[in-house]
Design a protein around this nucleic acid. Structure first.
Lengths: 391, 391
DNA sequence: GCAGTGAGAAGTAACGTTTCTGCATGAGTG
DNA sequence: CACTCATGCAGAAACGTTACTTCTCACTGC
C-alpha cells in the first residue's frame, strides 16, 4: 500500500481514513506479486488480492461485488469493505473480455475534410452529441468519438457495443463492416441506399417543409423560394421533393437555387442568384445553417428589407439568429431529442430489448418564428404589405 | 456467413459484393464453434480460426499481423490474406487485457448541472474537443467523453490509458482516484489546490490581460472596467489579479463587478451594475463568453454608443461576435491549440516519453480586434474622442 | 564431423474477470 | 432415518490475445 504512494506526487499521509477490519492485507498482494516473476509497474489490487484479504474465494468476491450469487449480507458487506480498503477497481478489459460487453458506444460523424467534425452542422452536432452523451451515461454507457472515414486501426482497437452514425453516407464501409460483425448500428438520419442499420431516427422533413411554406403563406408570401443543396442525402432530397410537391399543389412555379452544401462560399453566391432572378421570390427558406446570414446579406445588397420585402426562414440551431437584425425565424431539428432517441434505440438493440426488430422513428421539428417571417411585428407599426416585385 | 445475415433487417441479398478468395472459410469457425460447448451468439472469427485456416500457429498469426517476430514476407502475406478473407478482427478487449493498453483517452468536462457539458464555455469546449479528438486519432487513440462528477460506475467500467480534464475543480475526487491508480492525467487549465495531475496546459492569462488593457488604452480608454467572476478558479483569479496589478501600475482606480459565472442571468445584471456606477468606465473587458452581448445590451440601455462612448472586449470563441452591431473584439484562448497540446502531453506521458516529468505548458492567446474597441474605424469618419463621463 | 548460429515457427503461460458446476452442511420432510 | 432441498461457498474453465521460451532444422566454419 505504501509503495503505491511513494511514486505519486500525493501530499496526504499514506494511511487513509480509519477503517474497520483492517488487516495487513496487502501482504497477500505482496506475496501474490512476489510469486509472479514479471515486475510490472504500479501494482493495482486484483480480485485475487481482495479474495485473499477477505479470506474468501474470488468467486465470492465477484458475486459479492456484483450482487449475484447466494451470499448472506454479512459476507457481502465484508467483501465490499475489504475491496474498498484495498482500493480495488475491477479491470474493465477483463470484464469486457469475459462478458462481451464494453459499455462503450461509438459516435461517428461524417467528415468532409481532415477534421473529424463537420463545421457546417456544428451547432446541430454539438447539441446532438451532448444529449447523446447524457442519455448514454444515464444508462451506464460512455460515448467514444470516432470519425467515419478514419484509419481502420482505431475502429478495430476499441471494443464497441454499438455505434451511432450521424448522416451515414451511401454504402458506408465502416457501417457495413460493423453490421457484418454483428454490432448494432443506429443512424441519425435515414440511411441512403440499403445501408443495413438496425434503426434510424430522423425528423419529419416533409411535414416541416409544409409547415414552413404554410407559415410563410400566412405571413403574406406570394412566391416562396428555396435555397437547397445539390447533394443527394435524404434531408435535401426529401425537403426539396416536399417543396416541389407543395408548389404543385398550390399552383406556384418553383423558384429554387441549389449549391453544394459543404462549400461555405457557394451558399452566399446561391443566395445572391436566387434574389437576382427575374421571378424574385418574396419569401425564402434556406435548408442549411448559414443560409440565414447568406440571405440577409444578399437582401441587403439588393436593397430588400426583411421582412417587409422579403420573408426569411432557415433551418438552423444557431442561437445567433435570435439576435441578428432582424432576428431570423429558424426551423430547429431538435438535435437534443434526436440524440436521446438514437441512443435509446441503440442501447435497446444492444440489450436485446425490442426483439432486434428494425425501428424507424420520425421526430417532429420546431418552427421558431421571429421577426424575419412576420409582416406584422408586435412592437412595430404595421406596415402595409408590399406587392411582390415580380408577380 | 449467411447465418449472420439472417438475423439482420438487411434488404440486400445475403451475398455481398463479390469478394476474391472466397472459400467456405467459416467452416473453420464452425468447427471451432462445434468444439466449444457454449453456444454463443454471432461467432466472429478468432485468431485460432485464422491460424487453423492458414495452417500455422496462433503465435505466427499474431506476429504476422502485428509486424513482429521473424517471419518471411510470404508467410506474413499469406496469414494476412487468410485473416482478411475470414473477416478477422482482433478482440480489442483481449488485447487490452494482455497489453494493458486500451488506446482510449478520457475527456472530462466539469459539469455544473445535470448535463455533461457546460453551456457557458460551449464554443470553447466544442473547439477544444474537436482538436483533441483529431490529435488523439492521429496518434491512434480515441476519446471517451466522461462527465467529471458521474456515477463512479461508468468510470471504472472503461479502461482508460489516460485522461484529459478540463478545468478540474479543487481536489477533484475523480482525478485523485485516477492518479492513485497510476493513470496519467493532464489538465486544461492550471489545477487548483495540489491536485496531482501529471501535466497541464493553460493560456498566459496575465499576458493576455495586459495586452488587452494596453490595447484599450491605445484606443483611447481612460478608465477600463472589468466584468469578472466570483469563483476561485485559476482563470478568474489570475485574470483579476493581473487587472488589479495593471491598475496599480498605471495608477488607475480598479472598476470591476463580479458575478457567479455559471449563472447566465447574473452576467447581464452585473454588466448593468458596471455601467451604472458613478465612476463609469469608458472601456470594459468581460472575462466570460456571454459578456459581449451582456455589455452591448447594457450600453444600449444607457444610451452609450460602442465604440464611441464605450470600448468593448470580451473573452470568447463565438463567431457571432464578428457580426454583432458593432462587431465585438474578442480574446480567443485558441482552444484548438490547447486541445492538441493537452493530448500530446497526455500521450507522451502514457507512452513514457519525457521520463514522466510533470510538464506545464503556457499557450499564447489571440486578440481579435474588431470595431468595438477601435475609436478610429477604417470605413467611418473619424469621431473625436469623447471625454469619459466620470473623470 | 560437429559445435555454433540463426531463421522460422510452435508451445504455453499469463492478463483479470465471470460463470458454470460441484461440494459440503444443515434444515425441513414423509 | 433416509430423502430432498436450499444455502454458502470454492474450483476451474473459459474469454482472445501477446510475449516469452523452446524446438527444429539447415547451414556455416573449423
Amino acid at each position: 500500500m505504501q509503495k503505491r504512494y511513494f511514486s505519486l506526487p500525493c501530499s496526504h499521509p499514506p494511511n487513509g481514513p480509519p477503517e474497520p477490519y483492517y488487516q495487513p492485507a496487502m501482504t497477500a498482494a505482496g506475496n501474490h506479486q512476489a510469486s509472479r516473476s514479471t515486475g510490472r509497474r504500479l501494482e493495482r489490487a486484483g480480485i485475487r488480492d481482495v479474495a485473499a484479504a477477505a479470506g474468501v474465494s474470488i468467486t465470492t468476491v465477484s458475486d459479492a461485488l456484483n450482487g449475484k450469487g447466494r451470499l448472506p449480507d454479512t459476507t457481502r458487506r465484508h467483501v465490499r469493505e475489504v475491496a474498498n480498503r484495498l482500493g480495488y477497481r475491477p479491470s474493465a478489459a477483463a470484464r469486457t473480455l469475459r462478458t462481451g460487453r464494453s459499455g462503450l458506444i461509438g459516435l461517428t460523424v461524417t467528415t468532409y475534410g481532415e477534421e473529424p467534425f463537420t463545421f457546417t452542422e456544428f451547432a446541430y452536432f454539438a447539441e446532438m452529441a451532448r444529449s447523446a452523451t447524457s442519455a448514454a451515461l444515464a444508462r451506464g454507457y460512455a460515448l467514444v468519438i470516432l470519425p467515419a472515414s478514419s484509419h481502420h486501426d482505431v475502429w478495430s482497437n476499441v471494443a464497441l457495443d454499438g455505434t451511432v452514425v450521424i448522416d451515414p453516407s451511401d454504402h458506408d464501409p465502416v457501417v457495413t463492416d460493423l453490421v457484418r460483425q454483428g454490432i448494432p448500428v443506429v443512424s441519425d438520419g435515414r440511411p441512403t441506399g440499403n445501408l443495413p442499420v438496425h434503426a434510424w431516427v430522423d425528423n419529419d422533413h416533409e411535414d416541416a417543409m409544409r409547415r414552413i411554406l404554410d407559415h410563410l403563406t400566412d405571413a403574406g408570401a406570394r412566391r416562396i423560394g428555396l435555397l437547397t443543396g445539390t447533394s443527394t442525402d435524404t434531408y435535401t432530397r426529401l425537403s426539396t421533393a416536399a417543396y416541389l410537391d407543395w408548389c404543385e399543389r398550390v399552383g406556384q412555379e418553383p423558384v429554387y437555387e441549389s449549391y453544394p452544401a459543404h462549400d461555405p462560399c457557394a451558399g452566399a453566391v446561391a443566395a445572391d442568384r436566387l434574389l437576382a432572378r427575374p421571378d424574385r421570390p418574396d419569401a425564402v427558406y434556406g435548408l442549411f445553417d448559414p443560409n440565414g446570414t447568406d440571405l440577409l446579406a444578399a437582401a441587403r445588397r439588393y436593397g430588400l428589407r426583411v421582412p417587409e420585402d422579403l420573408l426569411l426562414v432557415c433551418c438552423s440551431e444557431r442561437a445567433a439568429y435570435a439576435t441578428t437584425e432582424p432576428p431570423i425565424s429558424t426551423l430547429s431539428l431538435k438535435p437534443g431529442r434526436i440524440g436521446t432517441a438514437v441512443v435509446q434505440l441503440l442501447i435497446d438493440a444492444i440489450e436485446g430489448i425490442g426483439a432486434g426488430q428494425p425501428v424507424q422513428q420520425v421526430m417532429p421539428t420546431d418552427l421558431i418564428v421571429r421577426a424575419s417571417s412576420q409582416r406584422r411585428q408586435p412592437r412595430t407599426t404595421v406596415s402595409s404589405p408590399r406587392p411582390p416585385s415580380g408577380g
